[in-house]
Structure formats: C-alpha cells, structure tokens
Nucleic acid binder design. Structure first.
Length: 176
DNA sequence: TATTGGATCGCC
DNA sequence: GCGATCCAATAG
C-alpha cells in the first residue's frame, strides 16, 4: 500500500528509519522501476550543520520548508542528483535522503537517481503520494542500524550525529 | 561580478 | 587520493 502524507508528517528520524524495507516506485516513459530502500539519512532543522537548510531558506532549498511528502532533488558535484523526501510540518526544514536501494548499481544516492531516471528537472517538487514517484509498504519488516553521516566533514559535530540508517547486515558502498 | 567548494562517484 | 563538471552560496 502506498504511503500517504501522514507517514511523512512525523519526526524525520522516525521516517528515515521506517522507510527502510519500503519500496521506491518510479514511473518514467512507460517503464516502472521499483526496489527496496536499504539506506537513508535524516537532515533536520537549523542546528544540523550538514543540512542545506541550516542557514535558512534559499532558492534551492525552499522546498525543504514546504509541507511533507514532496520530493527535493538537487544537482551535486555537477554530475549527480540526490533524492530527498520532505518531512515534518510546513516552515520547519527537514528531509530524508535516500542513499541506497536493493537494485543493481543503486548503492549510493547519486547512482540510484541515475538508474531510476530521477533528476532535478523531472522530479524536484513532485508530490510523492502521486503516481509518478511514490513509496509503498509491502509488509516487509527489517532491522536497522544507525551510522554517522557521510560526506559532510565540513559540518563539524553534525557529521558525527548517527542520523544515517541502514538495513542491518546489508552491504552497501559505505561500510562504517 | 568573481570565487569557491559541494548530502558523489569512479578511476589512479 | 583526485578529477569530473555545474551551479548555489558567499564575498567583494
């Protein structure tokens, strides 16, 4: 069953944990791509130095300040896109980054966007309770572990907060 | 207006 | 370890 807005309108770390074992579904040009989510990461509020939104609203991150269940997709390093789902209430910036899927070449946030044809141009601002990009609960229960964040050493203490979540014993690219 | 460096990845 | 490659966010 498709996850509705109320699922995303909860504390971000809880959403990040509960997304593990759910299925990301993407429809694009007559094809359907779907796979289980294996790794996520939470970005929450103004105190999280790793978050794009910690300094306040800008043209890029404004969607993080909007209501839950919308997609925030941005270009990183000039070549990859990253998919986030907005969580919590309007005007509080928070999101969950999808970092890994159980699918070929989807062990990484940039790689899964490439495989699932997700880009800033075609997915930023989409409602993820719609028919193009959404997440389903198919009744799979998983155990997870919490890990430090990745690629955000500039963020000081925030980089050490264990806000990254992964299905237990699942082998992804990043094995801390 | 100019400069810098990034929520990444793949190859050295 | 480092380059690719674009653009958002700062500084001037």
């Amino acid at each position: 069953m498709k996850l509705g807005r109320e699922f995303y309108d909860q504390e971000t770390k809880k959403v990040a944990q509960e997304l593990l074992g759910k299925f990301l579904v993407r429809k694009y040009r007559g094809e359907i791509y779907q796979a289980m989510i294996t790794e996520t990461e939470a970005y929450v509020g103004f105190d999280d130095l790793a978050s794009h939104a910690h300094r306040g609203k800008t043209s890029r991150n404004q969607i993080m300040f909007g209501p839950p269940c919308f997609a925030y997709v941005y270009l990183i390093y000039g070549m990859y896109h990253c998919l986030n789902i907005i969580t919590e209430k309007e005007n509080f910036p928070a999101a969950v980054l999808i970092r890994g899927l159980k699918y070929p070449n989807c062990d990484g946030s940039g790689k899964l966007c490439r495989e699932f044809k997700i880009s800033k141009e075609n997915c930023n601002g989409l409602n993820v309770t719609g028919d193009i990009l959404y997440i389903e609960d198919r009744g799979i229960k998983v155990e997870f572990e919490a890990l430090p964040c990745m690629g955000v050493s500039y963020a000081g203490d925030s980089a050490l907060w264990p806000w990254r979540f992964r299905i237990k014993n699942h082998q992804n690219t990043f094995n801390l």
